[in-house]
Design a binder for these strands. Sequence first.
DNA 1: AACTCATATAGCATATATGCGATATTATAG
DNA 2: CTATAATATCGCATATATGCTATATGAGTT
Lengths: 108, 108
Amino acid sequence: MSKKTKKTKSAIEIIHHRYIKGDKGLLEAIADEKEKLNIAAQIHEMRTKEGLSQNDLAERMGTTQSVISRLESTDYRCENLSTLQKIASVLHCRLEVKFVPDTDPMLY
Amino acid sequence: MSKKTKKTKSAIEIIHHRYIKGDKGLLEAIADEKEKLNIAAQIHEMRTKEGLSQNDLAERMGTTQSVISRLESTDYRCENLSTLQKIASVLHCRLEVKFVPDTDPMLY
DNA sequence: AACTCATATAGCATATATGCGATATTATAG
DNA sequence: CTATAATATCGCATATATGCTATATGAGTT
């Protein structure tokens, strides 16, 4: 890639412009998938199963209740893995992150 | 939980103080677990299996090669889930994030 | 040696998440 | 209807990751 001038767009560039920067189809698909991860629900379930309040869990993690509430809220995007692993540690589990082949043709 | 005065520390509070705020044993354990996630390795493997260069993958994602390099580097901490899901999308897979019960007594 | 191609690294501006206190909303109990 | 516990939400400072360009390293080729 990288000619001197940027006049000729590669197919990739066009696709990118269209689906990443433009229509946002891909971004929406990503958002949908994110929802399926249901991390918030997992955290909520684990916490309640142990009979802990948000405040209890927060104390275990050395943080505050509002943080837990935010974590469990559905529209919370982009948690970072360290936070999730901290939760896993105090709830006696481990975090598993895997890329698995997707057979659903709707995504692409 | 939560009596009026904070004089009596719960076991949780003590543990927290000792392992989160103090010794950092827990934090190190978390770091170890993080390594086991091996996200960098997964990305690298998927990319090479498809015969893509870092630059190829970068273009698919609408970003640059250096970003991919950083993602695949081992010492890269705390990637956020959106980035991982974007990778999943362009590599035709989905991201799976699960909390699984940990039976290893070393962690706690 | 010079020339590619792939990958790694550095530096920096910007975007985004975290962490926290304060407050508001529910619930549930008395 | 209070009172209290649990949860949700807000605002903002700080921390951290991203995105990008430029550059460096390295492996191969001729």
